[in-house]
């Protein structure tokens, strides 16, 4: 069977989730590979969430928040950005492909762009292939 990437999308309640909702109501077509989890703010996303998603079998993790300056909580997305930048550097130096984790700003009016982001990320991950952290995990379970 051909490899279908599974992407976990953490979307902030105020902009990105509404943006994804707009993509739905305006019938934008995008790949079905993303599973969306709504959080109140992009700053709610602890790096541990991303790691858990990866080790539990996600091939990619997408973090979406409001554009800088638009955060409902004024500064949440700026903090998310710093955290995310450091997580990405760490994953990179440990040999995990950087493209598996992605941060995007999607506003409530960017339904079409949300579709484009998903399509682009799905293709990138399809090229990367299955997540290796997951592969190791399955091996472990067989071992036990």
């Amino acid at each position: 069977m051909a490899f279908e990437p599974r992407i976990v999308g953490f979307l902030c309640n105020w902009c990105s989730y509404t943006g994804a909702d707009l993509a739905g109501t305006s019938r934008v077509k995008y790949p079905f590979n993303v599973r969306i989890i709504r959080v109140m703010c992009s700053a709610r996303i602890d790096p541990t969430f991303i790691l858990k998603a990866l080790s539990d079998g996600a091939d990619g993790v997408l973090v979406c928040g409001c554009h800088p300056g638009d955060c409902h909580y004024v500064e949440g997305n700026y903090k998310a950005m710093r955290r995310y930048a450091l997580l990405k550097k760490t994953l990179r130096s440990l040999g995990v492909e950087e493209d598996r984790v992605r941060l995007e700003w999607v506003s409530a009016s960017e339904g079409v762009r949300f579709g484009e982001v998903i399509a682009d990320m799905t293709e990138k991950i399809r090229k990367l292939g299955p997540n290796r952290i997951k592969a190791e995990l399955i091996l472990d379970k067989a071992e036990r």
Partner: peptide, 19 residues
């Protein structure tokens, strides 16, 4: 993070500790 003394979850533990 898985708790057993097994290499399951080691990557996550060390990234989390560093973060």
């Amino acid at each position: 993070i898985p708790a057993p003394s097994h290499h399951l979850g080691n990557l996550e533990w060390h990234i989390m500790r560093a973060m």
